[in-house]
Amino acid sequence: MTGFLARLRETAHLMVGLPSYAAYLRHMAERHPERTPMSETDFFRDRQEARYGGKNGGRCC
């Protein structure tokens, strides 16, 4: 049940363009252990800017 809810939450987040912070941390730990990852707040702001401020603004009719 918690697995289902977590997935529902992840789906809702990605629907508004917010990828998983946990996956980001995992990626940074695996591939770039020498760099400090962004904090959750910075990550959120970065993704918000990337979704709406860049060229991905196109939404469907």
């Binding site: 990605l14 990828p19 998983s20 980001y24 941390l25 995992r26 940074m28 591939r31 990337a50």
Partner: peptide, 9 residues
């Protein structure tokens, strides 16, 4: 993969 734009989902 960069954890931001390219994320296996």
């Amino acid at each position: 993969a960069d954890g931001l734009d390219y994320v296996a989902t």
